[in-house]
Write a protein that binds this DNA or RNA. Structure first.
Lengths: 149, 149
DNA sequence: TATTGTTATACTCTATAACTATA
DNA sequence: TATAGTTATAGAGTATAACAATA
């Protein structure tokens, strides 16, 4: 195989990855919007669901944003009824952001949506091809983690 | 192969795609920031590079945003010296957004960066695996285009 | 002194609506 | 009457800096 062909193939995969990024992002954002959530607020809720009630400081670290940004996101999620601010049991400076029943059921729906989306995207692709795709993506992700670390 | 295994594999690929979306987006945004561009402004410049001098109306349609948004983006790109607003030769209502020499050389650098990134991400992956990855991504993209259309 | 979260302020992207100049 | 682009206004996400309460 000619070297120029190899370069072309790589470029093709890169363009495919960029398009996946755009379309998958659009699809996810649309799904969240139907639940009245923006990307950033859903991300916070997602972290909260994984870790349990957390201080805003811990959320800022997990989301890699400033404390100011978390204040704004929690303000929004509190207004929409997804979370509450509870007093911290031992540190009177801190607040524990806690999902409400609405917040928990929203997260359950989002997680079910992920399983559904996984099924939709890969429906009709033979198991061997799914496995090959997973291996290729593993390689790309390893390189990507190197580049962005 | 058990059906539960198949579901697990699909879910794994979906999670990989989500991580690619996050990391690739972060990497791209970082590269653009080094050129003093935001994602949205780079997108406009990208379209402009592909189509040549365009009216703001045409750009709004291509970017799928409102005319007001294009006004703001062009304001920014004009201030940073990447584009100019030129009179339209026949329609005195319209303006032709036109890349400057700086804008063109910035685009050349971005395009070279894409080729470099494609090489970096797929370095060390055998040609047959690159081809398999491309086929898998083709399948996913076809499904994704269906879902988001 | 250091840390948690807030207020103050600012910038970017985005949208809708009203308006001007032109077609 | 319709279209191109701007001004006016608003909301979301993000940041830095100054500040209050608490550790």
């Amino acid at each position: 195989m000619l070297d120029t062909q190899r370069v072309t193939d790589r470029r093709r995969v890169f363009d495919q990855l960029l398009e996946v990024t755009v379309l998958l992002g659009r699809d996810m954002t649309g799904a969240l919007a139907r639940d009245g959530l923006t990307d950033s607020r859903a991300h916070l809720l997602w972290v909260l669901d994984a870790t349990g009630p957390s201080t805003q400081r811990a959320l800022a670290d997990a989301l890699e944003v400033t404390a100011r940004t978390v204040t704004a996101l929690v303000d929004g999620l509190e207004a929409s009824g997804h979370v509450t601010r509870e007093p911290h049991p031992t540190d009177r400076r801190a607040l524990l952001v806690t999902p409400t029943a609405v917040g928990r059921s929203t997260m359950d729906r989002l997680k079910a949506g992920h399983v559904q989306a996984a099924d939709d995207l890969l429906a009709g692709l033979p198991a061997a091809d799914v496995a090959a795709l997973a291996r290729g993506l593993d390689h790309v992700l390893a390189r990507l983690r190197d580049l962005t670390s």
